[in-house]
Amino acid sequence: MSLTLSEVMRIAALARIAVTPQEAEAVQAQLNGIFGLLEKINAVDTSGVEPMYHARDVTLRLRDDEVTEPDRRAAFQAVAPQVEAGLYLVPKVIE
């Protein structure tokens, strides 16, 4: 398998990473190198094998429904790129 240039651009768009047309071919070549390595898994017969999504086979611990977090807006927004009136500002969201 190898990724086409348009597939590279499609995943870059999905991942919200700008890839210039000049970079695209180099990225494509590197990704195809990596997928060459990953190919190996395709040949393995895994029928009947349960996927292992977690390193340990345990179940979830739950938290009691209590409010424990105080307002720390000032500290959090001290590191924000742009804020006004307590809001994070972003380029206009177009609906």
């Binding site: 768009a13 919200r16 990473i17 700008a18 959090f76 590191v79 924000a80 790129p81 742009q82 994070y88 972003v90 380029p91 206009k92 969201v93 177009i94």
Partner: peptide, 18 residues
């Protein structure tokens, strides 16, 4: 959006992300 680096030049929200 909330912290860290933000590009200085962009054209709209999606371009800001990219």
């Amino acid at each position: 959006v909330r912290y860290g680096y933000r590009a200085t030049e962009y054209d709209g929200l999606i371009d800001m992300y990219r």
